[in-house]
Design a protein around this nucleic acid. Structure first.
Length: 1000
RNA sequence: GCCCGGGUGGUGAAACUGGUAGACACGCAGGACUUAAAAUCCUGUGAUCAUUGCGAUCGUGCGGGUUCAAGUCCCGCCCCGGGUACCA
């Protein structure tokens, strides 16, 4: 350790260097950003972190490092780069902690933020910290609440295809009622102007709720009584809450919702103009779930009610041979005949016992029951049976389907099981083996649709339905309005109060509505949210204030805009700032937010753009999703032990009986040996057999020694320990394993029961097994960046995280291979120094070779950063340093450029060397080196010469040779003669500057 | 089931528009320096066969195909990761 420290101080002293430049950047505000109209802007943003108590592990900064490299690169390229960071500081973990400890979540959050900031600062990011935002700061959430009010005061005008002031809608109602209103909403009944004007304010307000973009309504939610809150679908795992594992029930509650459905079409079409991965776009498309078809009404025989179904294939209406409605459908009990009552009841009970998840996952089991009722076919008037079946879910669409067994596999399965007809409606259709979902073909057996192509038949069918008044063309979206209320404490209060039970918006001047103090962070006795505990939670006039708070996604739906002008008190951001900085050019983050944050942020952006508050309608132009860094878990294998004794009283405590650990290799061989019984191709080699025999012998010897030791300690022959063939695999902390070799002393002292462990060694080492798993505390495979920085420095960490592999792929962390990039940095450092670590460079004119190496690297680094291939840049820099080293080059002109080239990746060492080169200004502000093609001009090319596509030899040829001359030279070469073997080539392919291929 | 990724040495990976498969690293083996170690440097390292040398054959999940030439393009499968759902 002493020596190592001395070594560090001898040459590349990263600890001193990094501390020095961190201080310099902070003191000189090197990364402060301001509007500069002379420069083009570039906005690089990382997804908002939630500061958890556990701090950062090495997986977290992966994206931050990549975006920081890109931001720094863009700055070198002359852009005015905005690169801020802040925190999504409201959230459930802090609240859970508050419930347990009584400590205010603001205090825990502040402590976590401090820790995050310390960790982030160590890594050397170029964030402009003066722009930091925190969603839990009243100066921030004032504007979150303000946006809520804007939504409350707006409705969606279908004619203008954008959000509009609700006052305009009220004016229309006063003049014409709602019959002509082109407004997206849930209002089903019509009223005249006179009726509207005659309504009480309360009645009017309740109607307006059906139009407002944020509105109060009853909706089904996943209520978790133990947590006293509603959970999102993805917060529920296997029917219980993800956190704590408490039961969850479906419950109808009055909730604030966001009318995101009004934006369904624009959220869908907007995807075409943004540069995101196809995977994320596809997830959003599926989530929005647009389907075009028709809504058809089926009359029920002997009943007044009708059953509505939505279908994407109205052309197959004559292929309907039965109907299936969900077991929970509201009409089931009403229409079921007396004879069928018992069967239906029994089936309903059965279906209710299965979770929705189960019903969805299980495709193979077909089940259902007949109601005894019949529907009338809307065209033929034929009676068709109505069944219930659990493959139809009440919560989707209308909860009913018109079954077309010839065209839908599930309907086909159902028809086959219950022996119902499967009428073909497309010419030449074979439905004996299964349904045919093909959308090509000519319709038949379908009255007025006969002879039409599917596409035309769909149009014609809808026309006919509309004419007959039994259906209409409809576009259906799967997307549902987003529930916005949370029964939690640690979130933004909703700026609403209740006047005689009527929800009223607070005035903007009263914002921020600050989060009040409460005595406990739990729901009240009667199930009211925690805010109901606050004293005097009323307006000045005494009206009670809303007690729900906003969800986690509220603050993160617009934060990118606040960074543009974070300290503005008069508006969320000034028009100047918005017009200059615009939207995010590069957004870096995980793909897991595909249907949450990324959809809601797009929705709010479109709304704010509609209202003229934002000059753009998509928040994130380009997005890159970094992959997860997985952990590399290490395992040890202890033999199963058993103790034989005449009396249980004589057996010593288990921790006194040593475990025997066998190497990973032994486990592999034993597995292989067992397989050999099944597959006779697998046999152990002589060496392997010897190894195993040797191992068994060693175990026997150890067993004997252990038993003797125990006898001496606890008395003779009282008991005997036996070690079986079987081994137990257990996780061992990755920090005590180097190159799969276990630090046995550290292992023994880590726990009392390990203290007397025995190891079977190979070459004096115990080699562990390893497996790739998610990083988690329980697997002892979490690697903390602080430790890496302490032993190798932040520049090494930055380079290494990039060097691991392509950014977007998930990849395992392996601390051992970090040596490579660290060695590279030391090598780089030594290029600038002599043997005594004195800074020493030559001022000579660079040679042609040196220039070539440099410019090849400039081009490669630039091209690769532009296409976000961060890993290959590191290789390119390594190759450059290796090649310059081979030339024993220490040319100042060349190395000066190289320092700038490496700055985005390793800013600390770059600053230090830049300063030593005699510069005053920070290297981060220097222009990126210009690539000069003239240095790469070649006069010859080394051609690989292939015969029948197989490369046989290399041949260097001048570039100015014609194809004929190349062919002649190649054919005359003695190697060619050998491969031609006297034959005449059939064909010679010459691709200039690429290859020569001779076909024999 | 459907959609999106991915499958290349012992390991992480590279090969961007079809044109020398395995760059660059890790690890391993051998060597130099050293009293010794660390650090550093040099050499080798896909597999098999041949090794005295020249080398030869095979090889990018599997099976076909297109092409002078396929990790890359096409068809059909298998496996792994992620998303999503009886969306009618």
């Amino acid at each position: 350790m002493q020596l190592q420290k001395a070594q560090i101080e001898m040459d590349y002293n990263f600890r001193a260097i990094e501390a020095k430049w961190r201080k310099f950047w902070q003191e000189n505000k090197t990364y402060k950003t301001e509007i500069d109209n002379t420069k083009e802007k570039f906005y690089v943003l990382d997804m908002f972190p939630y500061p958890s108590g556990a701090g950062l592990h090495v997986g977290h900064p992966l994206g931050y490092i990549a975006s920081d490299i890109y931001a720094r690169y863009k700055k070198h390229k002359g852009f005015n780069v905005l690169h801020p960071m802040g925190y999504d500081a409201f959230g459930l973990p802090a609240e859970q902690y508050a419930i347990q400890t009584g400590q205010h979540p603001a205090i825990t959050t502040a402590a976590n933020l401090k820790r995050y900031r310390e960790q982030l600062d160590q890594i050397g990011f170029s964030y402009d910290w003066d722009r930091e935002v925190r969603t839990s700061d009243p100066n921030y959430y004032k504007w979150t609440q303000w946006i809520f009010l804007q939504l409350f005061h707006s409705y969606y005008n279908i004619e203008l295809d954008k959000a509009d002031d609700i006052k305009n809608l009220v004016a229309l109602f006063e003049q014409e009622g709602n019959a002509s209103a082109q407004a997206h909403g849930d209002q089903e009944t019509l009223f005249t102007a006179a009726e509207w004007n005659a309504m009480s304010e309360k009645e009017q307000q309740s109607i307006l709720m059906n139009y407002r973009l944020t509105y109060l309504s009853d909706s089904f939610v996943n209520w978790c009584p133990a947590l006293g809150t509603v959970l999102a679908n993805d917060e529920i795992k296997d029917g219980v809450s993800e956190r704590g594992g408490h039961p969850v029930e479906r419950k109808k509650m009055q909730q604030w919702s966001m009318r995101i459905t009004a934006y369904a079409e624009r959220l869908l079409s907007g995807l075409d103009k943004i540069d995101w991965t196809d995977a994320i776009k596809e997830i959003q498309r599926n989530w929005i779930g647009k389907s075009v078809g028709a809504l058809v009404s089926f009359e029920i025989d002997q009943h007044a009610e009708k059953i509505d179904v939505f279908t994407t294939r109205p052309d197959t209406i004559f292929g309907v041979s039965f109907m299936v409605i969900a077991p929970e459908h509201e009409l089931v009990n009403h229409i079921t005949t007396a004879e069928q009552k018992d069967a239906i009841k029994a089936y309903q009970v059965k279906a209710a016992a299965r979770s929705e998840r189960e019903r969805m996952a299980d495709v193979k089991q077909v089940s259902g029951a007949f109601t005894g009722a019949y529907a009338k076919h809307p065209f033929s008037g034929e009676l068709i049976p109505i069944w219930i079946g659990d493959y139809v879910l009440a919560s989707y669409g209308t909860g009913a389907v018109m079954a077309v067994p010839s065209g839908d596999q599930r309907d086909w399965d159902f028809a086959t099981k219950f022996e119902m007809p499967i009428p073909a409606v497309i010419e030449g259709q074979d439905v004996s083996e299964g349904a045919d979902a093909n959308k090509e073909g000519i319709i038949c057996n379908s009255d007025f649709l006969n002879g039409l192509k599917v596409k035309d038949a769909i149009v014609k069918a809808i026309e006919a339905m509309e004419e007959k008044g039994i259906g209409k063309g409809k576009t259906n979206y799967r997307l549902r309005d987003a529930v916005f209320s949370r029964q939690r404490y640690w979130g933004e209060p909703i700026p609403i109060y209740y006047k005689d039970g009527m929800p009223m918006a607070m005035d903007e001047s009263q914002l921020p509505l600050e989060l009040p103090d409460v005595d406990k962070y739990l729901p009240t006795e009667d199930g009211e949210p925690p805010l109901a505990r606050a004293e005097n939670w009323k307006t000045a006039e005494g009206h009670p204030i809303e007690t729900n708070t906003m969800p986690g996604w509220a603050g993160s739906s617009w934060y990118f805009a606040r960074y543009l002008d974070p300290n503005n008190t008069g508006e969320f951001a000034s028009q100047d700032a918005l017009n200059y900085w615009q939207n995010v050019d590069l957004y870096m983050g995980g793909a897991e937010h595909a249907t949450g944050h990324l959809l809601y942020a797009r929705f709010w952006t479109k709304f704010l753009s509609d209202k003229g508050f934002l000059p753009f309608d998509e928040p994130f132009k380009k997005m890159i999703n970094q992959g997860m860094i997985t952990g590399n878990s290490k395992f040890v294998y202890s033999l199963v032990k058993s103790v034989k004794s005449s009396s249980t009283l004589n057996i010593p405590d288990n921790k006194n009986i040593p475990s025997i650990y066998i190497p990973f290799k032994a486990i592999q061989l034993r597995n292989k040996k067992n397989q050999s019984f099944i597959d006779d191709k697998i046999t152990l080699s002589e060496n392997e057999t010897t190894y195993l025999n040797d191992l068994n012998l060693k175990i026997k010897v150890l067993e004997k020694v252990i038993n003797e030791g125990l006898s001496n300690k606890f008395g003779k022959d009282l008991f005997e320990v036996k070690y079986s063939e079987f081994a137990i695999k257990s996780n061992v902390d990755v920090s005590i394993v180097t190159n799969d070799s276990l630090d046995i002393e550290a292992f023994k002292s880590s726990r009392e029961e390990y203290a007397n462990a025995e190891f079977i060694l190979e070459d004096g080492k115990y080699i562990c097994g390893s497996e790739i798993e998610k990083m988690s505390k329980s697997k002892f495979n979490v690697v903390n960046p602080d430790i890496i920085i302490e032993s190798y420095g932040a520049d090494t960490l930055r380079l290494f995280e990039m060097f691991l592999g392509p950014l977007e792929q998930s990849k395992p962390w392996d601390t051992d291979s970090i040596e490579g990039v660290h060695r590279f940095l030391r090598k780089f450092w030594r290029m600038f120094h002599d043997g005594e670590n004195n800074f020493s460079l030559t001022d000579a004119e660079p040679t042609k070779d040196e220039q070539k190496i440099l410019h090849k690297t400039i081009k490669k680094v630039e091209d690769d950063i532009e296409r976000f291939s961060f890993n290959t840049v590191v290789s390119a820099l390594m190759i450059c340093v290796n090649e310059l080293n081979d030339l024993k080059s220490n040319n100042k002109t060349i190395l000066e450029q190289l320092v700038i080239l490496i700055t985005p990746y390793a800013p600390h060492i770059a600053e230090e060397l830049w300063e030593k080169l005699g510069n005053q200004e920070s290297v981060t502000l220097q222009a990126f080196p210009t690539f000069e093609p003239k240095y790469l001009v070649e006069s010859s090319h080394k051609y690989p010469v292939s015969f029948n596509g197989k490369m046989r030899f290399m041949l260097e040829l001048p570039l100015d040779l014609s194809k004929e001359e190349i062919e002649k030279t190649v054919m005359e070469h003695e190697e060619s003669q050998k491969w031609l073997d006297g034959k005449t080539p059939k064909k010679v392919i010459i691709v200039p500057k690429k290859i020569v291929n001779i076909v024999v």
